[in-house]
Simulated assay, not measured.
Amino acid sequence: MIEVLQWSTLATCGVVAAARVPSALRGENRTVFFIFALLTLAILLSIEGPYVAIDRALGGVNAANLILRFVIFAAIFCVGIRITRGFGATNGYRLVTGRIGMAVLATVSLAVVVLFLLIDSAGSSSGLQDISLRGGPDAMLVEYYGAAGRAYPAYVSLVLLPAMVSAVRSRLPAMVRLAAVLLAAGAVAIALTLLFPVAPPEWGPAKFVINYTAVLCFVVGLTLIWAAKVRYGRNVAREKTSTEK
């Protein structure tokens, strides 16, 4: 089931990214194209087969996992920009792109790199699972590394949540409000990943479901906003929400 979810999510992201290519070439909403392209790459690097093949080409030291972390950071940063600007959430935009947001990104990025360098990462392993199974200091470092990697996406998701809640309660078109519901669900799912370190081992499959649910919610939500713009001929989401009053 997990493999089906992974490949179906990859296919969905890839199709939407391909559909955005003509618009991106015309210079229209390139941020949205970059989001879908980055998410497609992130999902590809999350699947064991492609991950192992790519990582072995890079030297077999799990450099692909480090690349994956920064691909996710780039994707969620673009999501934060697109959603806060699209919904007129100026406070949220500042928290993503301003000094606080940049400080959080820089701190988390540094932590991720330092922790990765401290791990004996030899041997390609999707999700660094084999390294965790070794036990000892490396297993603990992998946990810290994973927690650091989840911190920035969770931060951006929590920043986005108030604007999404306000949009759901607004008088925006139903399609946009549905998109806001999905984006809010995706934000909550990402925030829940902060609890992974305290989750019991038997909840492993649930972690995959939460991760891929978040991706699908963001992809479908952004696609609905795109469809709403095409239908109504304007940026229907760009209205002040209660968070800006």
Rank of each mutant, 00 (worst) to 15 (best):
V159N: 13
T40S: 11
G60A: 01
V198M: 05
S8E: 07
T193I: 12
G233Q: 05
V4T: 14
S242A: 15
V168D: 00
F196N: 14
R177I: 01
I81W: 09
G127C: 03
I76C: 02
S242W: 15
S242P: 07
Y93L: 13
P205G: 01
F87G: 04
T84S: 13
A199W: 11
L44P: 05
G149Y: 00
V21E: 02
L172S: 08
M164I: 09
V198T: 12
M102Q: 12
V52W: 06
A64K: 00
L45F: 09
F73M: 11
V230L: 15
G204H: 12
V21H: 11
A199L: 09
V159S: 06
R94A: 06
L222N: 06
L128E: 08
V198W: 14
R169M: 14
E143Q: 09
Y212N: 07
K245E: 14
P50W: 07
A103Y: 09
A237K: 07
R169W: 09
G49L: 13
L160C: 08
G186Y: 10
F34D: 11
Y51G: 06
L68S: 05
A106L: 10
R171Q: 12
A64V: 06
P200N: 00
N91A: 14
P197K: 12
R177M: 01
G49W: 13
V61F: 10
A63M: 03
S8C: 12
L5F: 03
G27Y: 00
L117R: 09
I43R: 04
P200A: 13
L178W: 14
S125W: 02
L115C: 08
L133Y: 14
R171G: 10
A206N: 03
A111R: 02
L222K: 02
I210G: 04
R69A: 15
V15E: 12
L216C: 07
I81V: 15
L195E: 03
V215C: 07
A19T: 08
L194G: 08
A189M: 10
Y152C: 01
A174P: 09
E143M: 13
R69T: 07
V4L: 15
F196S: 13
S46W: 02
V16Y: 08
G14T: 05
R82N: 14
A180D: 07
T241A: 12
S126W: 11
A53Y: 07
L68G: 06
V236E: 13
L5Y: 00
L44V: 11
V188L: 10
V181E: 01
R169T: 06
I72H: 09
S242N: 14
I54L: 15
S157Q: 09
A63D: 01
N29D: 15
S121W: 00
A184V: 03
I83H: 03
Y145R: 04
L128Y: 03
W203G: 04
L117E: 08
M1S: 15
L115R: 00
M102P: 02
R238Y: 13
A64D: 02
S109D: 10
D120L: 10
F116S: 00
S121R: 06
S46V: 05
L66T: 10
L161Y: 02
F70E: 01
L161S: 05
P200V: 10
M164Q: 00
I83T: 07
L195Q: 04
L195F: 06
V4Q: 04
W226Y: 15
T9L: 01
Q6D: 06
F87S: 04
A106K: 02
S121E: 00
A199I: 05
I190A: 05
Y152P: 04
G136K: 05
R85A: 15
I81D: 04
L182A: 01
A11V: 13
T223Q: 09
D130R: 11
